[in-house]
Amino acid sequence: MILSKDEILNLTRLPKNFDSNLIDLDYGFQSKIFPLVSQNIFDELKTEKLSIYQNLAKAGVLYAFVLDIPKIKVHISNYGINQFEQNKTAKAPWWDVRDLGLSWLKKADFFLATALKQLGTEANYKTTVDFFNKSFPLISFEEFDTYYGLNNSIDSYFTLVQLMNSIWEDFQRNFAPCSVDDFLADETLKQYIRGYIINRALSDAADYGSLVFLTTGIAYQYEELPWQKSVVLSVRALNSIRAKYRNEADYFLKRIFVYLQNNQVLFPCYAQRENNGAKIIKKKGGLFL
Rank of each mutant, 00 (worst) to 15 (best):
residue 159 T to S: 13
residue 148 Y to V: 08
residue 186 D to I: 06
residue 200 R to W: 06
residue 181 D to V: 13
residue 155 D to C: 06
residue 172 Q to V: 06
residue 147 Y to P: 01
residue 206 A to S: 15
residue 161 V to F: 04
residue 172 Q to W: 07
residue 210 S to P: 09
residue 191 Q to D: 15
residue 160 L to F: 05
residue 191 Q to L: 14
residue 177 P to Y: 05
residue 210 S to V: 12
residue 166 S to L: 15
residue 208 Y to T: 08
residue 162 Q to G: 15
residue 177 P to F: 08
residue 169 E to L: 13
residue 158 F to Y: 08
residue 142 E to F: 07
residue 159 T to C: 09
residue 195 G to Q: 06
residue 173 R to A: 15
residue 157 Y to D: 02
residue 147 Y to Q: 12
residue 209 G to N: 11
residue 211 L to K: 02
residue 204 D to G: 03
residue 213 F to E: 05
residue 181 D to Y: 11
residue 159 T to I: 08
residue 172 Q to H: 06
residue 194 R to P: 01
residue 162 Q to T: 12
residue 198 I to W: 03
residue 161 V to L: 02
residue 156 S to I: 00
residue 213 F to K: 10
residue 168 W to S: 15
residue 190 K to C: 12
residue 152 N to W: 10
residue 184 L to P: 06
residue 144 F to L: 12
residue 201 A to I: 00
residue 159 T to W: 03
residue 174 N to I: 05
residue 184 L to H: 01
residue 208 Y to F: 07
residue 158 F to R: 03
residue 166 S to P: 12
residue 141 F to W: 05
residue 169 E to Y: 15
residue 199 N to P: 03
residue 200 R to I: 04
residue 176 A to D: 05
residue 153 S to W: 00
residue 188 T to W: 10
residue 159 T to K: 13
residue 170 D to S: 13
residue 155 D to R: 13
residue 183 F to H: 00
residue 157 Y to K: 05
residue 201 A to L: 04
residue 215 T to L: 09
residue 142 E to A: 09
residue 160 L to N: 02
residue 184 L to M: 11
residue 193 I to R: 00
residue 147 Y to L: 08
residue 141 F to I: 03
